[in-house]
């Protein structure tokens, strides 16, 4: 095949570039410029004494990075950064796979033909429509030990527990943020997976049935592999979205003024406090840059694993 010059290829695809241009400009203005600024800020001694100088604050090089990575006694480290990292890890994994799991179960149920299926599809997406900050506020009431509906159901209605547990203090706090996030997030995954399920030809299942495949085998060898492009993308979105989760913790625990506790603090709430409440803007920016590099690495690993599934076949 003859090699086509770059100029020809650009000209040939010019309409595509026209469409991409606004996105590119938007990305540059909204993402790239602030990102470059944040990276620059991470090299500055920007705190409550130098904030007036802003980008002219003293240059401190990699000091903040050294503090975060190698100095366990630094202010940013001792403000609970490691606990927040642990919580974020657990939270991200459980929420990402939890929302996919619940979404898949419901999508499989809704992929059948029965009366009222459209009504159920609409009803099931209601929790996704609730804004995140409202979810945080609502669940704060639901988790309350004495008057919350969760303990009422667990103890008074079902008798599953003998004593009402605390959800908003102690280790249960982590569940108090994980469960509402799954509750809010699964409908989106359900919609995506349902769309994927509807693209799988019925004939595959008919052939499998003739060959004597059980329902589980049909799921294992047809549904799951053919849904791979969907759940691969959902894992990608889920990991990024959940690592940067902020609203639910902010709203559930003192509207950002309180301390969510050793089991409720996430990286974003921790960095937010370090940056804006404690006025350590330089160190906060460095923590964000480290997290960004970590996330880029995760995205690259994801890309390696799922490259074949997401590449457009020509």
């Amino acid at each position: 095949m003859a090699t086509v010059s770059l100029k020809t290829r650009v000209y040939k695809n010019r309409h595509a570039y026209y469409f991409i241009l606004p996105t590119l400009l938007g990305m540059l203005l909204i993402h790239f410029v602030p990102m470059v600024q944040a990276v620059y800020m991470s090299f500055l001694g920007l705190n409550q004494n130098t904030i007036g100088l802003y980008l002219a604050a003293p240059f401190v090089g990699f000091e903040h990075y050294k503090d975060i990575l190698f100095n366990p006694d630094s202010l940013i480290r001792i403000s609970g950064l490691s606990e927040a990292a642990r919580n974020t890890f657990i939270y991200t994994i459980v929420v990402t796979f939890g929302t996919i799991f619940v979404g898949l179960i419901v999508a499989l149920m809704l992929n059948r033909k029965f009366k009222g299926v459209a009504v159920f599809r609409t009803l099931f997406i209601l929790s996704w429509v609730v804004p995140q900050y409202v979810t945080g506020l609502l669940w704060n009431f639901m988790w309350q030990r004495d008057v919350g509906i969760v303990n009422y159901i667990l103890v008074n209605v079902t008798g599953l527990l003998n004593e009402k547990p605390f959800w908003l203090i102690g280790p249960n706090t982590l569940w108090a943020i994980i469960i509402p996030t799954i509750w809010r997030g699964w409908p989106f995954n359900m919609i995506m997976l349902l769309a994927g399920l509807q693209n799988i030809p019925e004939t595959y299942y008919d052939a499998a049935k003739i060959d004597g495949a059980s329902t589980l085998q049909q799921f294992r060898y047809i549904t799951w592999p053919l849904l791979k492009p969907v759940w691969a993308i959902l894992i990608f979105f889920g990991l990024i979205f959940n690592v940067y989760s902020f609203n639910i913790v902010y709203m559930m625990f003192g509207l950002g003024a309180g301390y969510p506790g050793e089991w409720g603090d996430l990286l974003m709430t921790n960095i937010f406090r370090a940056t804006f409440s404690a006025w350590r803007y330089g160190a906060g920016a460095a923590a964000c840059v480290i997290l960004m590099i970590l996330m880029i690495t995760i995205v690259l690993i994801w890309d390696r694993i799922f490259q074949d599934e997401i590449t457009v076949q020509k």
Partner: peptide, 13 residues
């Protein structure tokens, strides 16, 4: 300003 969040955290614990 920066002292307050430190106190809030430890008193919270």
């Amino acid at each position: 300003g920066p002292v307050e969040p430190i106190l809030m955290r430890h008193i919270g614990i």
